[in-house]
Design a protein around this nucleic acid. Structure first.
Ligand SMILES: [Mn+2]
Ligand SMILES: [Mn+2]
Ligand SMILES: [Zn+2]
Ligand SMILES: [Zn+2]
Lengths: 132, 132
DNA sequence: ATAAATTTGCAAATGACTTGCAAAAATTCT
DNA sequence: AGAATTTTTGCAAGTCATTTGCAAATTTAT
């Protein structure tokens, strides 16, 4: 583990929500080149320390978001993303494992990954816009 | 409806699976500039004639895929994507409307959209790789 | 038919992400 | 430790899907 990797993993571990490479690169505690950030995110993911998904937000564009991958919990979470304030709301651990198995049986394919997320406007952004 | 739009919509309507802008642009029946393709896909989607989602395939990269939006059926479909042969397999119409409502109630946010798809290796690609 | 509004093609620009390459840092081997 | 070897990093340039400015072409309105 180089210091760049340790620092990256530490940020991911602390974060309450998925983080994009650009947000990580902008953090003062990660004074590394963007190439280093990207390369190490790949490294952390392939080593099983992190996981990611690509999300498109109407306001903020398309980016890959990373999360720390907990050894203990085993299952990833799914998220709601607010297109106004860019916040993520945790919808809880993935409950689709069974459904995936069923589909694999039914269609004969092998699922490597699945992507699921919601986008919209969060409660606090909704109440804020009422004041305008 | 300009002829570019008619032609685009016709291809989308005929297609059994979601299509990306690059695949549409490569079709002989759409001899238009890529800017025209992109602009008209936006147009068709905002007019409610088409819908789309962004999918990342390990082999083929990240692209937005469009589908014809049927007036009658009302509900979109979700898909499995084979990272080997690039085929899409229809998993049927979306059955998450109720779940979405529940979440909106529970969290107070408003969902504008949801994304759900699977990636992996399809049955025929699996059997093919056994022959190697 | 003439003016006004919309659409198109072409070329350049974006933005996220990737890659070549030489220098710097971490490992491995005397 | 000290030298040799492997891995990682920074910097700059490159990719790739998608977007945008602008003038010409096509439509639509008058
Ligand atoms: Mn956002
Ligand atoms: Mn593919
Ligand atoms: Zn919000
Ligand atoms: Zn396949």
């Amino acid at each position: 583990m180089t210091k760049a990797r340790k620092a990256l993993l530490e940020l991911l571990r602390e974060s309450k929500e998925p983080i994009s490479a650009s947000m990580l690169g902008g953090d003062p505690s990660l004074p590394f080149d963007q190439a280093t950030i990207y390369r190490n995110l790949h490294y952390l993911e392939e080593q099983g320390f992190a996981e990611s998904f690509i999300l498109h937000c109407t306001e903020h564009g398309t980016e890959r978001y990373y999360s720390y991958r907990s050894r203990s919990e085993g299952v990833h979470h799914h998220w709601f993303h607010c297109e106004k304030c860019h916040a993520f709301i945790d919808l809880g651990g993935c409950v689709y494992q069974e459904q995936m198995k069923d589909w694999e049986q039914q269609y004969g394919f092998t699922i490597n990954d699945h992507t699921f997320f919601l986008t919209g406007i969060c409660a606090s952004c909704k109440s804020q816009s009422l004041l305008e």
